[in-house]
Structure formats: structure tokens, C-alpha cells
């Protein structure tokens, strides 16, 4: 439940509402970037995604590492990715 999965920002879809489309392993959904409002998140940035929120900006190196680590978790990762895909905030 505390999984943070790295995703890459595809585009800022609603700047006023702090919403962005993010890509995690080829799966895209809308997340909130409000917790990083002062860090000027842009397209192509990597972020750590937790329960539909970007919680930290990370670099490509950390993204690769974390993604490999969570993929290694097997079922927990598939469940998380399914949940990520199955629901929507807008």
C-alpha cells in the first residue's frame, strides 16, 4: 500500500487543477501534481507516484532503480498497476 511507482509526466492536462497525465510502464492515467506545486513539474519529468499523487521529483536513474525494484515485487506490482489503470479521477 505504500508503493511509490516511478512515472514520467506526459503532459500537464489542467494547470489550475494541478492535474497531469503520467506514463507508468506504458500505462497512462491522470494524477494530481498538487503536492509538488512549487517544483514546477513539466512534461518528461520523472516523479514517484503514490495513490494517484506525484510525491517526489526523481531523476531517470532513481526511476530505473525503483521501477526495477517494484517490478521485482511481482504480484504487489501487478496489483498496483491494475489499480492504477482501473480507476480514474476525472
Amino acid at each position: 500500500m505504500c508503493l511509490g511507482i516511478p512515472g514520467q509526466i506526459v503532459e500537464i492536462t489542467d494547470a489550475a487543477g494541478h492535474l497531469a497525465k503520467v506514463d507508468v510502464s506504458g500505462v497512462q492515467r491522470t494524477i494530481s501534481i498538487r503536492l509538488l506545486a512549487e517544483q514546477q513539474v513539466q512534461a518528461e519529468d520523472w516523479v514517484l507516484v503514490h495513490v494517484g499523487f506525484a510525491m517526489a521529483k526523481i531523476d531517470q536513474r532513481e526511476a530505473d532503480l525503483t521501477l526495477a525494484a517494484v517490478k521485482h515485487m511481482g504480484e504487489a506490482y501487478t496489483d498496483e498497476l491494475e489499480a492504477f489503470q482501473a480507476t480514474a479521477i476525472v
Partner: peptide, 28 residues
């Protein structure tokens, strides 16, 4: 997957009351 999903369910179901079961440390 996200508390924002719950909020969306609430706006889509104005005749129901939607409760979100919030758990988690400072991460969540």
C-alpha cells in the same frame, strides 16, 4: 486506487453518500 477516485465517485453519484476509508502514514 486514489482518494481522488472516491471524490469522483461522489460527484457522479449525487444521491448517494461516499465514504473514503483513509489509512496510511505521512506518505499517504
Amino acid at each position: 486506487y486514489s482518494p481522488l477516485d472516491s471524490l469522483r465517485i461522489a460527484t457522479e453519484n449525487p444521491d448517494k453518500h461516499v465514504v473514503f476509508f483513509a489509512v496510511g502514514f505521512e506518505t499517504t
